[in-house]
Amino acid sequence: MAASTKKILLVEDDRFLRRACEASLRQRGFTVVPAMDGEEGLRLARSETPDLILLDLLMPRLPGIEVLRALKADGATKNIPVLVLSNSSREQDVAEVMELGAVDYWVKANLSLKELSERVVRLLGG
């Protein structure tokens, strides 16, 4: 399966969600690099050069929105597609995230893992 070669950076501070998401994506053959907070996420995004970044917004140390901003400001990472996964659905957050160049904004509670994976697969063309 072509998707097995794809590397996904999962930036998520909630360990249950991180674990569930990681497991689900692994099961579907993706390489998953987990990050526990924004700082780690940014660091790994630079060192690992993933194919896709799944980014939470409300996180300790560095909020997702700042991570996104930093990623898009950095020539090395600005072309990596970023999917924002958040349970906050404030309009201004959605608007800001899209403005900064995120691929999409998904509410985690409204997604099943299956749907998430399918969308990721669609996105990565795998």
């Binding site: 909630d14 689900s24 349970n87 906050s88 985690k108 893992l113």
Partner: peptide, 25 residues
Amino acid sequence: KTDFVSFVTHQLRTPLSGIKWMLEL
């Protein structure tokens, strides 16, 4: 109020998502 609702929503939805996804696994 909006900020409060957003916050509460987020705080509720996050563990709910965890439960949902775990159960799905």
